[in-house]
Design a protein around this nucleic acid. Structure first.
Lengths: 228, 228
DNA sequence: ACAGTTATTGATCGTATGGTCAATAACTGG
DNA sequence: CCAGTTATTGACCATACGATCAATAACTGT
């Protein structure tokens, strides 16, 4: 075979990626974690590979590995960040509402109207991956507890205010959380009408909390602030 | 470097695996699918790789690839088989019970007592993988519908028999299915007392079906037959 | 302007994935 | 007993994964 000098080597070379600018470690670390968060929300936790994060961050895989202890740790941490953010969002929104009934109504509505499907996908991935990743499983447990606690606190407050009637706020909180997660998981692969889901859910919770029919099914009065 | 004749080659060679016996294609195909089923139940759908199935079946990866159109197809089919089996189990067990209330009580009990955690894990994997595997997503939709239909039929029968009161069996069926899936997903990573889950769930369903308190919370009278 | 520090990288390793295909070896019927 | 059929395999391919480490290049303080 003849060798032609100056032959074009068919290196794919997708956008040659020049060297990343040197930045203070804290900033770079923050950027990498932010990128991981975006990636997880966009394509799921399992799409959050070393290489994918690196490319999205405009950086070498080696650098991601340098800043993060392991991909499992980054996955667990990213999951926790996303859920903490969701919880903080909801807490902030709820704080702007006065009555416990309104508050619970808002929570059900915002969690079931399909506007948080990306987060649902992250939860589902976490349940699945959590069986093989201990750190992630731990994070899932913690965040599940945090959610349950939020719901329980709302319920207890409502009971103390005389709006709800229940003898077991803890169990009701677990039940409601289970309903939300289950219905959302279904919605992920099988889009039934979000409205229908919201209605049946509201009815069930009304009954659990001793509320009059359709006390929860009305949409919330206004759209509270949401961290972007 | 000197070459020693008769040198031991450090091939790992874990149980040399002699050639698999020649079998009729239908039988071999059945064995491979059975192996896939066992693997999925034992370690989850995502553990069901070409090589893992092959090794478990005592066969070469190439043979698995030869008998199955693709791993995605095998995954989807295995998922469907497992869930169809679960549904058939429950249907058979329920048929042995007389009253609709008993039937619903049995379903709740058997789905929430933790004895079907392997299947729950398969569901969770399917929700997660289904976002990237179209065939699997399709199977998930079909089997979700099948489950909903089973529940709805039970509810309608109970209403017709005058035991249940509800004006929307379809929605109640979706709600109950959602509760079950959500609580089971939680149980997968976070073992709360199965008994507690069953109780709160029973109470909620009693209320949805207009049943008297603790009509469902009693354990079923006897253990109906289960396909192994 | 130079030396020291350190953020970033390329090269590489070992392992895993799903998939293809010609070659092999075990049956089968004549 | 032999020829034809075919179930099974080994040898690959291309790709992806997480991770490590010496080398490089961009800053910093003097």
């Amino acid at each position: 075979m003849l060798v032609t000098l100056g032959e074009e080597v068919p290196v794919p070379q997708q956008t040659p990626r020049r060297r990343a600018a040197r930045k203070p470690p804290e900033q770079r670390a923050a950027e990498i974690r932010a990128t991981a968060r975006e990636l997880a929300l966009a394509d799921g936790l399992s799409a959050m590979t070393l290489r994918a994060v690196a490319q999205q961050a405009g950086v070498t895989p080696a650098l991601v590995a340098h800043y993060e202890p392991s991909m499992e740790a980054l996955t667990a941490e990213t999951f926790a960040v996303i859920v903490r953010e969701e919880i903080a969002d909801v807490k902030a929104a709820v704080a702007a509402l006065a009555a416990p009934t309104e508050r619970v109504g808002y929570v059900l509505h915002t969690l079931l109207d399909g506007s948080r499907d990306e987060v649902t996908a992250v939860w589902v991935d976490a349940w699945s991956l959590g069986r093989r990743m201990d750190l992630l499983a731990r994070a899932v447990r913690e965040q599940t507890d945090a959610w349950q606690q939020l719901l329980r606190d709302l319920i207890v407050a409502g009971r103390d205010a005389g709006e709800f009637v229940t003898d077991d706020p803890d169990s009701v909180a677990w039940l409601v959380l289970g309903m939300i997660d289950g219905l959302n998981a279904h919605a992920l692969v099988h889009y039934r009408d979000a409205r229908a889901r919201g209605l049946v859910m509201s009815r069930a919770v009304e009954s659990e909390l001793g509320l009059p029919r359709s006390a929860l099914s009305k949409p919330p009065p206004s759209k509270p602030p949401v961290t972007p």
